[in-house]
């Protein structure tokens, strides 16, 4: 509940510029960012202003598609460590695609991240077979 009121927070004074879209409440900017269907594109908006950085940092859900899986680079780890506490995390990975697939050492950090930072649901989805592993609700800390 306290979490919900945080996401409904309107822009702080001075954060809402001449452009009207930045004046939308966080909740609606989150809806817009999720429509981008790309975690990279959503993350790029955080450079726009302090307001957008806060919006990205509080994004409640993250969907990672196989064509944009983050490289296991330190910059992504740092960003994730610094930013979102998620309610939902969904990762789409290729299944038996032309590539080597997803090695276990890539998956285990996601699971660790999920256990620490995701308060709601986590799904790991394999394409093109529409099998899906959905973890039970992770108890929030």
């Amino acid at each position: 509940m306290g979490d919900d009121s945080r996401r409904r927070r309107p822009p702080l004074a001075g954060e809402c510029g001449v452009d009207r879209i930045s004046c939308l409440p966080d909740e609606l900017l989150h809806v817009i960012l999720l429509c981008l269907e790309s975690s990279r594109a959503a993350a790029r908006t955080s450079v726009l202003s302090h307001r957008w950085r806060r919006v990205w940092a509080h994004l409640p859900a993250l969907v990672l598609f196989d064509n944009e899986l983050p490289p296991p680079s330190s910059s992504f780890q740092d960003t994730v460590d610094a930013a979102p506490i998620l309610q939902h995390l969904s990762i789409w990975v290729p299944d038996h695609g032309p590539g080597p697939g997803v090695p276990a050492h890539r998956v285990s950090p996601w699971l660790r991240f999920t256990s620490q930072r995701v308060t709601g649901s986590f799904s790991l989805n394999f394409r093109p077979n529409v099998t899906s592993f959905v973890a039970p609700e992770v108890a929030g800390e």
């Binding site: 009207r20 879209i21 817009i32 429509c35 726009l48």
Partner: peptide
């Protein structure tokens, strides 16, 4: 609004949104 943002550099997004 997402379509207005998609595929643009941060500077282009700023201009599109009227920053």
């Amino acid at each position: 609004v997402a379509d207005m943002i998609k595929g643009k550099s941060p500077m282009e997004i700023r201009r599109t949104l009227g920053f």
